[in-house]
Design a protein around this nucleic acid. Structure first.
Lengths: 211, 211, 211, 211
DNA sequence: TATGAATGAGATTTCATTCAT
DNA sequence: AATGAATGAAATCTCATTCAT
């Protein structure tokens, strides 16, 4: 069902090499951008020959899609892993904000790539992550619904707006791990050097607001 | 005091032409991205010769900085214009969200360009808008302070977090005017075709939450 | 005595496989041209591995020469088969034109390949078919000689020119089976859709002219 | 009405340079073939930079079409120039065969290019010369008609076949100037070193045959 | 000052050939 | 002997920048 952007050759090589290449691509794409990334750099960083890249992916665009697809499934896995239907609203928000923060810190280049997908110039890749965004939407809606059911969220609150706000906050936190500008902005609000505390502080704040 | 990125020649041409060039550059940069924009396209769109571009700006990077600087001062003007220290918190949020939305709708390419500046690949331009972000921060802090003073915001609310949240929401609304992906995400929350109502709905929601 | 362009390995594989490979090569060379043909395509079309091709033929050029040599001997066989020293001039011309037409229709890619050999860029392969051309010359000279002897050709006719003309006509007919342009040209003369009747019509015409 | 394959830039440069580039392209295409010709070689041979070539022609294919178009109009001019409706059949054939021979000798690379167009691999360019072929057809039909009217051609002769034969012979003579293989073949018929006499000898032969 | 032709370094992509398994 | 992954040189095309007019 999932579309494959790579060639049969790519499926035949050792999975260790496959991972190495996709990680290198992810790193270069995150660093130099979709347009600025050079296949030769990815090849060098992955320790394969320039020509080999094109035996793994028909075109640069295909490689990009493959990296996005991998990023998506990694993210989906993490979402699923952090999902605990039994936890309370505040605990859930705290867990999700914290894990979003940690994952973004671990692979900031994937976040950079994700940021790129919002640009019109890269719109042709955006469809690749829509499913993930949809997934994320649903997740937040359910979290809000549970919060209302448990009384942790005021009944008068607009569900959709609350979900949007929570999603936007999580996204903003992640972006501040990948982007110097977003990080600077975050520090303007929480204080220089206090970024690390941001996920918890935001959790407290948002939980308080919604009650 | 402000740094000039253009040449003396650029100052000698009619201001109408100057505007035309900067607007064309803005449009092309927003559409094709910082890396993907071509000087020849800007020239063609502005109705000047390709060669002239380099007599106005020493390099492409300089032209980009000039466009960003112009975007910044436009934005600063608007901020100043919409500032009404006498208005209440709710009214201020509504006005700012709405005007952010309208301005983004009017010049989405400036928003696109602004989005680009969060990417690491374009980090060398980010310092150009930091002053504006700082300005925006201060503004939201003052708005929150007024809200607390007037009792429209609960005393227990974390000031910094509230300001961050309001800023993030305003930014998110603006971005959804320039990016198909962000627009799709907004519609996932507020419902397809209901994007237009988003600024008011977000205002209502956030005002309710902070009370 | 004949030069071998293939390796010893090629001689050890089943003759069925050998044929399959040479036919595939012929097809690909005819379709994509000598320069444009890709070894990988030949391999795929023949159902052997890419690498094997180079264990059968040291280089692409060798493979091409092998294909040409095979085409030559096929053609020589057919020449010999259609040779009937006892037949009259008109009957001989008719038979040869018709069989040239039919053979070209059956394996147009061999004709394409033969056409390629007239190009300067492929001159290095031309020596491979000179013997065949020489053979063809001799054959036509003999046919003309028989025609004169039997009185079917006017004594005043220039033998060499007549033979050249007959050979050129036969060649032209064959080429029109492989080349869209040559076919279009033939139809300009004989009428659209009437190409199939061309061999007989040309036979009648040329027999009438030489009498 | 005529389609232009070059850019506006190409029209702005000195006509001397334009000619130089098209001639260089023609030479390289004739020598290395359509697929084998390299833009860098054309550029070097014309004394312009590699990059400039792409400011004159959007793509290599466009350059090829431009060269073909130029070859066509040169050829059409010559056709028109050698047209003498008042001349007798034999004189016309002699003039046309001779001028075809001379022109082919003067610019063999154009003939090579023309030969290339018969290959399936180059079929996408063939439509560019169909008008010329059509023109040539009509011309030979008229020549044959005049020959019949003046009694120089036997009434029983098949008009279409005669025209086809004359056209094929002219083409064959031209091709033998560009192709070593075709030249060798011609010499097999007329005798080594006697190629130069071929046009006249063929004229005599064909005039005799058709009477 | 304005123009637009010219340049060349650099990016993607192709493919004959090699070689480890 | 067979396979197919790996290689890297080379080809087309792009575009910021320069420069003669």
């Amino acid at each position: 069902m999932a579309i494959r952007y790579h060639t049969a050759t790519f499926e035949n090589i050792p999975s260790e090499k496959r991972e190495r290449i996709l990680r290198a691509a992810s790193r270069v794409l995150g660093r130099d951008g979709i347009g600025g990334a050079r296949m030769a750099d990815v090849a060098a960083e992955a320790g394969v020959s320039h020509g080999s890249m094109f035996s793994y992916f028909p075109t640069k665009d295909d490689m990009i899609r493959a990296v996005i697809a991998r990023g998506m499934s990694l993210q989906a896995e993490r979402f699923a892993a952090s999902d605990d239907e039994g936890a309370g609203f505040a605990a859930t928000v705290r867990t999700v904000f914290r894990s979003a923060w940690d994952e973004a810190s671990a692979e900031p280049e994937l976040i950079s790539l994700w940021l790129s997908l919002s640009l019109v110039e890269n719109a042709r890749f955006a469809d690749a992550i829509l499913p993930l965004e949809r997934d994320s939407t649903e997740r937040w809606r359910r979290v809000v619904a549970r919060g209302k059911a448990s009384g942790e969220i005021d009944q008068g609150i607009d569900d959709g707006a609350a979900a949007y706000l929570l999603d936007a906050l999580a996204a903003q936190l992640m972006k501040s791990r990948a982007s110097g500008l977003e990080r600077a902005k975050l520090e303007l609000f929480v204080g220089t050097g206090l970024a690390e505390a941001a996920p918890d502080r935001m959790t407290d704040a948002v939980v308080a607001m919604l009650r």
